[in-house]
Structures are given as structure tokens and as C-alpha cells.
């Protein structure tokens, strides 16, 4: 009597299917709409999706959306560029120089877990209530994940590659540029993802103080006014912004990390 050997392999290889992703979102929104219409969810607790959509369309038509987005994006871009740029430089220094490592690691370990929102009043004292404190908040948030990812990436670069480069007489700068940086790039791109997400999270905090324009300021004002449809509309804009940024980084990864495939 023969029996097939029972199959025991398979699984543990999750794959993202686009259709399922879209369908899940659609089902969620449909459920939300149904719950609102049936009166299971009070409009005070959560406005129906139709109202949110209407609010979004109104925002887009009036040009307010563009105005708020422009203000937030300029803060995001400059804050992220400053913070992530500094993070890469400091991370490289920590990854390559003993003195910087000894000095930098404990400082980063001490400052990374601080909620940046708690420092907002200090930023206002240091940088005022204008653009500088907003950019600084975002930069501060983006700096740490980038620094940690960079030195982690540098630490992870195969030492034999560095010895190889040395054995062929490559100058130090070339070793950093051609061996260390590309080797650390995958980790740095993951760091970019986290830093970008934190920057978007902090846009609301950054625009708490003295901002009349910006998606964060808009969401705060809607919250203060209990205009929940606009509040959720603003949150949707932030979430789309997050998706866009994540998509851009994904595209950058597939170009820059072509060699991994």
C-alpha cells in the first residue's frame, strides 16, 4: 500500500497582491459608510465617508488644499533634508571614526527616545514661532532614525570588502565613497523610510505653534472647531502623503538597489 508523503513545506512567503490591497481598502470604506448610514456610528464620533469626500473636494476646489500642502511640503522637504542630511553625516562619522563613535553613540541613545513634541516649547524659545521652529522640529525627528540607520549600515558593510579596497591601494575617500556608502545604502534607505514617516507624523506637532497654513495646522483647527469631516479629510491627505513618500522611496530603492535582485 502506497501513500503520498504528506506535504509539509510551503508558506512563510507572504506576497503583496495589489488587488487585495485595493479591495481591502474598498471594503473598509464601504463598511464605514454602511455603519454611518445605519446609525451604528454617530456622526459626532466619525463622519460618514461621503462627507469626508465632499470636504476634500471642497478643499481642493477652493485652492485651500494646495495652499496647505505647499506650506507643509516646504517644511517637510527642508526639515527632512536638514535632519536626514545631518543624520547621514553623523552616522557616517560614528560608523567610521572612533572618537565620533564614542561621543555620538551615547548622545543618540539618550536623545532618540525623547518625544520631539515634548521639546516643542523649547524649540519655540530657541527658534521662535516662525518657520525655523517648525523646520527644526521635523529635522530633529528625521535626524535620529537616519543617523542610527547610517551607522548601522556602515557597521554592516563587509569588512573584507574594505580590506580588499585597501589592498589595492584605494585612497580613504574612495573607500568611503565606493565601498562604505554603497554598502550602507540598503540600511540608509530603510532609515529614510522611517525618517520620512516620522517627519510626516511631526508635521502636525510642528504646525501646532503659530501656523495658519499647512495640513497639520488645518487638522488642528478642524479638531478645535469639531469639524470632524474636515479633520478626517486632513488625515486622509496626510495618509496619501505618506503613501506617496513611501512609493517614492520604493522607486528609489528599486533603482539604487538593482544589484540586489
Amino acid at each position: 500500500m502506497a501513500e503520498p508523503v504528506p506535504f509539509r513545506g510551503g508558506g512563510f512567503q507572504p506576497r503583496a497582491r495589489r488587488l487585495v490591497a485595493v479591495a481591502t481598502l474598498a471594503v473598509l470604506v464601504a463598511g464605514w459608510s454602511l455603519a454611518s448610514r445605519a446609525g451604528w456610528v454617530s456622526p459626532i464620533a466619525l463622519p460618514p465617508p461621503e462627507e469626508v469626500a465632499t470636504a476634500l473636494v471642497r478643499l481642493a476646489r477652493s485652492g485651500e488644499l494646495a495652499r496647505h500642502l505647499a506650506a507643509s511640503l516646504s517644511r517637510l522637504v527642508s526639515g527632512f533634508a536638514l535632519g536626514a542630511g545631518a543624520g547621514v553625516v553623523v552616522g557616517l562619522a560614528i560608523g567610521l571614526v572612533s572618537l565620533a563613535r564614542s561621543a555620538g553613540m551615547p548622545v543618540i541613545a539618550a536623545l532618540f527616545p525623547i518625544p520631539k513634541i515634548a521639546l516643542l516649547p523649547l524649540f519655540v524659545v530657541w527658534f521662535g514661532i516662525g518657520e525655523a521652529s517648525k523646520v527644526a522640529t521635523i529635522a530633529f525627528g528625521a535626524f535620529f532614525p537616519m543617523a542610527v540607520a547610517t551607522y548601522g549600515g556602515v557597521d554592516g558593510v563587509d569588512r573584507t570588502l574594505i580590506r580588499m579596497a585597501q589592498s589595492f591601494g584605494l585612497p580613504t575617500l574612495s573607500i568611503v565613497r565606493k565601498v562604505v556608502l554603497p554598502g550602507a545604502l540598503p540600511a540608509m534607505l530603510s532609515g529614510t523610510r522611517i525618517a520620512a514617516a516620522i517627519a510626516i507624523i511631526l508635521i502636525v506637532a510642528a504646525e501646532m505653534i503659530g501656523a495658519n497654513e499647512g495640513i497639520g495646522a488645518f487638522i488642528l483647527a478642524a479638531g478645535n472647531l469639531m469639524q470632524t469631516d474636515q479633520l478626517v479629510a486632513g488625515v486622509v491627505v496626510l495618509s496619501v502623503l505618506g503613501l506617496t513618500v513611501s512609493g517614492l522611496i520604493g522607486a528609489a530603492e528599486s533603482v539604487l538597489l538593482r544589484w540586489r535582485r
Binding site: R163, P171, K178, W259
Partner: peptide, 21 residues
């Protein structure tokens, strides 16, 4: 022993690496 090739460079790029400077 383990070749020590840069995975992000092509074959030609790996050979060219040691001449670039």
C-alpha cells in the same frame, strides 16, 4: 577566498574599481 567583489558593481565595474584612483 570569498572573492571580495562589490555586489553593486558589474563585472567590469569591479575590475575598473582598482584603476579609478
Amino acid at each position: 577566498q570569498d572573492f571580495a567583489l562589490l555586489p553593486w558593481r558589474t563585472v567590469a565595474g569591479n575590475v575598473a574599481l582598482v584603476l579609478e584612483d
